[in-house]
């Protein structure tokens, strides 16, 4: 080992000035490339984490959008003489819809709208009832987003509005 070091020193001593400069340039280039690799790895690492955050935000917004879409479905909304009540589901339509979406053909029909998701509406007060409106969950998934929103559930027979919570679990 010491012999190798000694021979290196002898080589350096015998080097001419021009050779030394070439060696210097090579050393500068090596340092430059090392710095570039470190810099780019830091940059791409930051970009990667930003993309992951953006993906979470996107999935979150998509889930909320799906929940808002659900509220505007004529199959479920509270309307009387073409007057539509915002943020409201009809109790009997909920019942009928939850029965309807148990069939595979209905799930296929609503798949483009909701994708892989589980949607339910829970009446909290004064009744306590739970309706699963759509249930298509994949066998494997990377992440899931859960969104809830307070909604009114209208009972057209008693003409009363109940307090409810709509919940959507979106799989990605």
């Amino acid at each position: 080992m010491s012999g190798l070091v000694l021979s290196c020193f002898r080589l350096l001593n015998t080097m001419k000035k021009a050779q030394m400069r070439v060696l210097e340039s090579v050393a500068v280039l090596i340092v430059f490339f090392i710095l570039m690799v470190i810099g780019s790895s830091v940059y791409f690492g930051m970009q990667n984490s930003k993309l992951k955050k953006d993906r979470v935000v996107f999935e979150d917004s998509e889930a909320l959008r799906a929940l808002v879409k659900l509220q505007s479905l004529p199959e479920l909304d509270c309307s009387f003489a073409s007057a539509h009540t915002i943020n409201c589901f009809d109790l009997f339509k909920l019942q009928a819809f939850s029965n309807l979406t148990k069939s595979e053909s209905a799930q296929e029909f609503y798949y483009p709208l909701f994708g892989d998701a589980v949607i339910s509406v829970k009446v909290v007060f004064p009744l306590e009832r739970n309706f699963t409106l759509y249930d298509v969950h994949p066998v494997e998934f990377k992440s899931l987003v859960r969104k809830t929103m307070p909604v009114l559930v209208y009972d057209p027979v008693l003409s009363r509005y109940y307090f409810g919570l709509s919940e959507l679990i979106k799989y990605a």
């Binding site: 943020n87 809830t148 929103m149 307070p150 909604v151 509005y161 109940y162 307090f163 409810g164």
Partner: peptide
């Protein structure tokens, strides 16, 4: 923004609930 939307929905739903 979503929390604000949720809070607004909660208040309007609460007021109208039976």
């Amino acid at each position: 923004e979503q929390e604000g939307f949720f809070a607004a929905n909660f208040l309007s739903t609460l007021v109208k609930s039976d």
